[in-house]
Design a protein around this nucleic acid. Structure first.
Ligand SMILES: [Mn+2]
Ligand SMILES: [Mn+2]
Ligand SMILES: [Zn+2]
Ligand SMILES: [Zn+2]
Lengths: 137, 137
DNA sequence: TTATTAAATAATAATAAATATCATTTAGTA
DNA sequence: TACTAAATGATATTTATTATTATTTAATAA
């Protein structure tokens, strides 16, 4: 693990592989996708360990849990960004717009009762693939 | 149910009560909160019916499922709006900003590969209650 | 480098959440 | 009012998640 990395945790092989996998796969993988991915390196890893560590790493602030259409997914990208979400298939892509972040944070300053520290905008629609599938029918 | 309402569905007592409850409780209730709320009117309603109908009404476009900190919640407010989300307790409040919707939709026009139909911004932070709790410790 | 030890793991059991089944009831209609 | 497809309630089943525990391991210091 990078020596620059904060977090006072034990970097076990299992945790390193989970983090590495998520950092190399920016598509917001599910629990099962993480499990299958990590198993290629650590064939004996238990699914309970994957569950426990996804939860643990999320609590420690090294991961974020997101949810699309009822399915939990995990995010390792901590650079503030937005998401394009397909209402059809649940695909979730990163989308960057510094100006939208700035605009939202400016608006956040006006909000009372909540102390806002970050924002993220979801863009809902239909992805290219799903749009083409629908045309065919 | 309002005669103006679309949706070609059977308006059973159970469905009417679920929709009514969610429309009268804008705080994004969970499955259990819906179940408990609706049971005050329909004491014999089954939990399976609540699950089935929340899913059904979501598919029919009369409800929306959201998720905060791994917990499913339901939304009956279809007027485009934003959310203030407490990272501490998971509270989720509505927040309106027409200008932010406009700004986001303008940006959405530039996006390729996705056809965007709506946007919503999440403001993450800490609510008043949680902030005061933390001060005390 | 090796010994020590608290924490993490694998395997599995236990819970909780969600869905499926099916006999009975009901909303919508004719 | 009678008919029928669909919905319900009760419960079984499945799936997702968390807890338990004997064993292993990462981090620390001798
Ligand atoms: Mn992302
Ligand atoms: Mn809302
Ligand atoms: Zn899609
Ligand atoms: Zn709070």
């Amino acid at each position: 693990m990078k020596p620059t990395e904060k977090a006072d945790i034990k970097y076990t092989n299992q945790r390193v592989e989970i983090l590495t996998f998520l950092r190399e796969h920016q598509g917001h993988p599910t629990v099962d996708e993480v499990y299958d991915g990590v198993r290629k390196k650590l064939t004996r890893i238990s699914k309970a360990t994957v569950y426990k560590n996804l939860k643990f790493l999320t609590e420690k602030g090294l991961l974020e849990e997101v949810n699309v259409k009822g399915v939990s997914r995990f995010e390792a990208n901590f650079i503030p960004h937005h998401h394009l979400i397909c209402r059809e298939c649940g695909k979730m892509e990163d989308f960057n717009s510094e100006q939208l972040l700035d605009y939202s944070m400016k608006i956040a300053e006006e909000i009372e009762g909540f102390t806002i520290v970050s924002t993220s905008t979801n863009f809902y629609g239909i992805c290219k693939k799903c749009r083409e599938c629908k045309k065919e029918t």
